[in-house]
């Protein structure tokens, strides 16, 4: 009887608390996290944060929504369907320069570009310069296609020195493995998957990251809706802190991280996810982070990133000050 009476009462107070003073929390703060693609090893930190209790420790309840590309993820944050998420900072910059979307980068995740050429051991493509005059397959909508001419130019090749074959993403791997094509454009985040395929076909994968050819920029970053940052700054701060912790844990314990993501999304193999995490360690921890620290979004590198992004997207270099795309108020303190 008493329970019946108190339950709605409790709900009302909880609601009032959530609406009014978020500091005075009765229930955990709810945060919707946006992925820019389907769950996988490269998306492990948020799952780790849940499974290892990093979010719970900050009194956060995190819900994860999968996405369909960086632009989709940015749109979902801009329209308020999600609060924070990981997506390519380049997509954010382009969207901000064009439409001024109310989303900002708060933490860097990949401080290097993931774009790369994949070929097989034994191919004549041994370095970036060798792709001249070759036929290369790529998927039609990847952002890599826009960076390719810039990378070629950077390495003294004409933009049309590579013949691009557009093909469904699912067909790239079979094309490469069957020798249908000599090289493909793919992301370093998929190296583990391609290596497994290559091994099954009795071959060895060779990866030529574009960072070797001078492509130097931030890519996947933690973004947040401006509304979330301004209305619930405290929640945002705690979230970023917990997320940074989760990233650290993920790359220190790939196997545990793999198991964590598998626990939430059974379709993801723990072992494959762990392999993915190991293979992309260099995107997360590298020269840039050893200099600036993990998560930093320095003005210099932001400007560098914008230089590449603006050219790739045919935007004027002065169309936007890259600093408007970043909000450093939520950076966790560096030790």
């Amino acid at each position: 009887m008493l329970k019946k009476l108190t339950k709605p009462l409790l709900q009302v107070t909880a609601l009032a608390a959530a609406l009014g003073c978020s500091a005075m929390t009765l229930a955990a703060d709810k945060v919707t996290f946006q992925l820019d693609w389907l769950p996988g090893g490269d998306k492990a930190p948020v799952y780790v944060g849940i499974q290892q209790g990093f979010f719970a420790a900050e009194d956060l309840e995190v819900k994860i929504a999968s996405g369909r590309g960086s632009t989709d993820a940015v749109t979902k944050m801009a329209t308020g369907q999600s609060d924070v998420g990981t997506a390519d900072i380049g997509a954010l910059m382009a969207a901000k320069a064009r439409d001024g979307v109310p989303v900002s980068a708060v933490l860097s995740y990949f401080s290097q570009a993931p774009h790369a050429f994949f070929t097989l051991e034994g191919s004549s493509i041994k370095s970036l310069k060798d792709v001249a005059g070759k036929k290369i397959a790529t998927s039609p909508f990847t952002s890599s296609n826009a960076f390719l001419p810039l990378v070629l130019k950077e390495n003294g090749m004409a933009a049309d020195s590579v013949t691009l074959v557009k093909s469904d993403p699912g067909a790239l791997s079979p094309m490469l493995m069957t020798g249908n094509i000599e090289g493909i454009i793919a992301w370093v985040t998929n190296v583990a998957l391609y290596e497994k395929q290559a091994a099954e076909a009795g071959k060895t994968l060779r990866v030529i990251p574009w960072t070797d050819g001078g492509l130097d920029l931030y890519s996947s970053s933690l973004l947040a809706a401006d509304k979330f940052l301004s209305e619930r700054p405290d929640v945002a701060k705690r979230f970023v802190k917990a997320f940074a912790k989760a990233v650290q844990f993920t790359y220190a314990n790939p196997d545990k991280a793999g198991a964590d993501i598998h626990a939430i999304v059974p379709e993801v193999d723990a072992a494959i996810a762990a392999a993915q995490i190991r293979s992309i360690n260099g995107l997360v921890y590298n020269d840039v982070t050893s200099h600036d620290g993990f998560g930093a979004l320095t003005p210099e590198r932001m400007a560098l990133t914008w230089k590449w992004v603006s050219q790739a997207n045919d935007l004027a270099a002065d169309a936007m000050n890259p600093e408007v795309a970043v909000n450093r108020d939520f950076m966790p303190e560096q030790k």
Partner: peptide, 11 residues
């Protein structure tokens, strides 16, 4: 549909 897409993305 999600499952199929997922499976393809993991080869």
């Amino acid at each position: 549909g999600y499952f199929i897409q997922f499976s393809t993305s993991f080869f």
